[in-house]
């Protein structure tokens, strides 16, 4: 297999307490249909669970769906925890109910992209294709 044929792996996760995962599933499915390997971990994930899953599955990107309003805590904390584990080369993106004013702050904290409700699936897929690549490994 050529290097450029490596599969891109994405973890789609629902952190915290909100129980609506339709959006996350729709995105997971669209990524699958575009040739990505998607690891879906289900509802009510703690940030430590997400970090460990990302580590064990050696993913290239993490997409979080947050509808609870806790995004200003969840995203920066996740990025901090990834850094602690030496996983800061994983691309973090997300979507959900997020006020536009918060987006620059989240980007400053290290979130690569935020997708708001109503974003076309094609746009998300295109962005992931452009911005999430297999992470380099050396022995």
């Amino acid at each position: 297999m050529e290097k450029d044929e490596r599969k891109v792996k994405i973890l789609i996760a629902k952190p915290g307490l909100d129980g609506h995962d339709r959006g996350a599933k729709v995105v997971a499915r669209a990524l699958r249909d575009s040739g990505f390997e998607v690891i879906y971990t289900g509802l009510h994930q703690s940030l430590d669970q997400i970090v460990h899953a990302a580590m064990e599955e050696d993913v290239d990107g993490i997409g979080l769906s947050i509808l609870s309003g806790a995004h200003m805590y969840i995203f920066p904390t996740l990025i901090e925890k990834l850094k602690e584990q030496g996983l800061d080369d994983i691309v973090v993106f997300g979507g959900g109910i997020i006020p536009t004013d918060d987006i620059p702050k989240l980007k400053e904290a290290g979130v690569k992209q935020i997708f708001l409700p109503g974003t076309a699936l094609e746009e998300i897929i295109e962005w992931v294709r452009e911005n999430v690549k297999p992470r380099a490994v050396s022995l």
Partner: peptide, 26 residues
């Protein structure tokens, strides 16, 4: 068709993912 996949077996086992004695791989 697409070569993609949804790996969902972890959903049932996620409570073990932070246990250092357990390694789950999809």
């Amino acid at each position: 068709f697409s070569g993609g996949a949804i790996l969902g077996d972890r959903i049932r086992m996620q409570r073990h993912s932070t246990d250092p004695g357990v390694f789950i791989k999809s």
